[in-house]
Computed example of a mutant assay.
Amino acid sequence: MKKVKIYVTLRESVLDPQGAAVQGSLHKLGYSEVADVRIGKYMELLIDPDGRDPETAVKEMCEKLLTNTVIEDYRFEVEEAVAQ
């Protein structure tokens, strides 16, 4: 089994109104040192690649369903799952 950690963020060229709202709230709370906030998504998948290359499979999942590649960038890490 493999554990996959996927990080999705808006592309730098895309406005992030949620990030701007959080930045404004932080400034109101006195955290004026915060220069920028970008909000993203984090996903964890537990997969059994069953002979497939897990990196190829995760890339396909991200590009077909998990991200909007027009406005989002993604990166992922594949590691061995720890038995529980």
Rank of each mutant, 00 (worst) to 15 (best):
A20E: 05
G40D: 05
K5T: 08
V22S: 05
E72T: 03
V37A: 02
E55C: 10
I47N: 01
P17S: 03
V34I: 07
A57G: 04
E79I: 07
Y74P: 00
D53F: 13
G24R: 00
R75Q: 11
M1R: 13
L26Y: 07
V14H: 12
L66K: 05
H27V: 10
K64Y: 01
T67I: 11
P54S: 05
M1S: 15
I39C: 09
T56V: 11
A20P: 02
G30M: 09
G40N: 06
D16K: 00
K28V: 08
A21C: 08
V22C: 06
L15E: 06
Y7R: 00
L29F: 09
E55F: 14
E12M: 11
R52I: 13
P54Y: 02
E79S: 14
V70R: 15
K59E: 10
V14Y: 13
S13C: 11
S32V: 05
E60Q: 06
D48R: 14
M43I: 05
E72P: 02
M43N: 01
S13R: 09
S32H: 10
R75Y: 12
T9P: 01
G30C: 10
T9D: 14
S13Q: 10
L26V: 06
E12S: 13
E33L: 07
M1D: 15
P49C: 06
I47T: 05
L29D: 02
I6D: 09
K59D: 09
G30I: 06
P54T: 02
E60G: 04
I71A: 13
V4L: 01
K28D: 11
Y31R: 00
E60A: 06
E80N: 15
K28N: 11
P49S: 08
M1K: 13
Q23T: 01
E33K: 07
Q18G: 04
P17V: 02
G51P: 05
M61Y: 14
Q84E: 12
L65W: 14
I39M: 10
V58W: 00
G30Q: 06
R38Q: 08
N68Y: 13
Q84D: 11
L66W: 10
E12T: 08
K2C: 14
G51D: 06
C62L: 14
D73H: 15
V37Q: 03
L65S: 12
V8L: 11
V34G: 04
V4Q: 00
E63N: 10
L26K: 05
L46M: 13
R75P: 03
F76G: 00
V22L: 12
M1P: 15
D36K: 15
G40M: 05
V4C: 00
E44K: 03
G24Q: 00
V8E: 07
E79D: 10
E80P: 02
P49L: 05
T56A: 12
L45C: 08
A21P: 03
L66C: 12
V14K: 08
I39F: 10
E79H: 09
D73Y: 13
K64M: 03
V82Y: 10
M1H: 15
R11P: 03
K3R: 13
M61W: 08
V8Q: 08
I39R: 04
V22T: 06
E79A: 13
T69K: 14
L26E: 04
I47S: 03
G51M: 12
V78T: 11
E77I: 09
I47E: 01
Y42H: 10
V4H: 00
H27S: 09
K3D: 01
K59N: 07
R75G: 12
R52D: 15
L10P: 03
Y74Q: 01
E63R: 10
E63L: 11
G19N: 02
V58P: 00
A21R: 02
